[in-house]
Design a protein around this nucleic acid. Structure first.
Lengths: 190, 190
DNA sequence: GGTAGTAGCCTAGCGCTCCTAGGCAAACGA
DNA sequence: TCGTTTGCCTAGGAGCGCTAGGCTACTACC
C-alpha cells in the first residue's frame, strides 16, 4: 500500500485551497481525505480535530497576507502606504475568500500572540506614523482603520453593496480618501 | 399524543434565542427539535431545510434591529442621530450575537428586497441628510459608515481588540467622532 | 353529530460528518 | 537484518440533515 505522503503543511495548504473553492464551512476532514485519496481517520494522525485544521488555515492566511502587505508597503509612506495596505488587504480577501474567512476565527490568546497577527499590528502602526498620532488616538485610529477595511470587505462579499448601482471599487477609493482625510485631521477629544 | 403547537414563528424565535446562546453554527434542526420535545423530522413540516431556518432568523434580526434603530433615531439629527444609530447597532450586536451573525447571511436578491434591510438603508440615508452629501458621495458615505460599524463590531466580537489595553468603548466613541468629522468635511473627488 | 379532509407529529432509515480504538505494513536507523 | 517508528488502514459509535410513509388530532361541512 503506497503512502500518500501527508504532512500537516500539505494538509493545511490543501484545506486553504479547498476553503477558497467551496467555502470554509465545507472544509471537512472527510472532504480533505477524499482529496488525498485516503480515509478520513488517517488525517487524525496529523491533526487534532477539525477545528485544529481551520486554525491552521487561519495562521497560514495571516502569514500570507502579512507577506503581501509587507511587499505592498515597501518604500511607501503617508496616503500612498495607506492605499497600498488597503488594496493588498482587499485583493487578498477577494482572491482567497476561504482563507479570509478563516482569519476571522477567534484564536486563543497565545496562538494569536505567536501568529502573524503581530506583524499586521506592527505594519498598521507603521502606516500611522505618517499621520503623527499620539496615544491613545493612535490605537483608536488603528481600530477604525481595521474596522473600515474588514467591514467593507465583509459587506462586499456578502452582497451588502448589490442594491445600489454605484461600483464597489469607486466607493472603496473614496472611502480610502475619507480615511486619509480623517487620519490627517484627527478630531480633538471632546 | 398532545401537540406541541409548533409554528414557523415560534421555531424562528426559539432558533434566534438558541443562536444567541450557543452560536449560529450550533443552531441545528435536531437541537431545536429537542427544545420543543419533538422529533427533528417534525420540523420539516414547518421548515424547508436548515438553511431556511437560518434565513428566517436573519429576517427576524433585521426587523428587530430596524425597530430599535428607528426608536433610537426618533427626534434626533446630525451627530446626535449618528451616535444613536451606531450605539443601537452595536448594542444589538452585543446582546444578540447569534442574531447578528445570522444577519450576515447572503440573502438572495428578492428575499433581501422584501426584508427590513430596506428600512436600514432608508434610515442610514436619513442620517446622512444632516451632512448634506450629494450622490455619489452619499452612497460612498453610507457604505463607509456601514463598513465601520460592522467592522468594529465584528472585530470586537472575535477578539481583535484584546491585544491592546485601551477600552473598546473609548475607541468606539472616538471612531464615531472621527466618522462625524469626515462626514462633515467629506473630501472632494481627486 | 357523523365524517371527510387536512394539519401535525410520528417511526424508520439513508448518507454524511467527526472522532476513537486498535491493527498492519512500509520505511528507517542501528 | 531486525526492531522501532511512522503512516495509513478497518471498524464502529454518535450526531446531523433530510426523505418516505404512517397514524392521529383537529376542523369544516353536510
Amino acid at each position: 500500500m503506497a503512502r500518500a505522503g501527508l504532512t500537516v503543511e500539505r494538509l493545511t495548504l490543501a484545506a486553504a485551497d479547498l476553503a477558497d473553492e467551496v467555502g470554509l464551512p465545507n472544509v471537512t476532514v472527510a472532504a480533505l481525505a477524499r482529496h488525498f485519496g485516503v480515509k478520513d481517520a488517517s488525517l487524525y494522525f496529523h491533526l487534532r480535530n477539525a477545528q485544529d485544521l481551520r486554525v491552521r488555515v487561519a495562521l497560514l492566511a495571516l502569514a500570507e497576507l502579512a507577506d503581501r502587505v509587507a511587499d505592498a508597503l515597501a518604500g511607501r509612506a503617508g496616503k500612498d502606504a495607506l492605499v497600498a495596505f488597503a488594496n493588498a488587504y482587499r485583493d487578498y480577501a477577494k482572491q482567497h475568500p476561504g482563507r479570509y474567512a478563516a482569519m476571522q476565527i477567534d484564536l486563543d490568546p497565545q496562538t494569536a500572540a505567536a501568529s502573524a497577527g503581530v506583524r499586521h499590528a506592527e505594519m498598521t502602526r507603521a502606516i500611522l506614523r505618517g499621520y503623527r498620532l499620539a496615544e491613545p488616538d493612535q490605537t483608536d485610529a488603528v481600530r477604525m482603520m481595521h474596522s473600515t477595511f474588514h467591514g467593507f470587505v465583509s459587506l462586499e462579499r456578502t452582497g451588502g453593496f448589490r442594491h445600489t448601482p454605484r461600483s464597489a471599487d469607486d466607493s472603496w477609493a473614496r472611502t480610502l480618501d475619507a480615511l486619509d482625510a480623517v487620519l490627517s485631521n484627527w478630531p480633538a477629544t471632546a
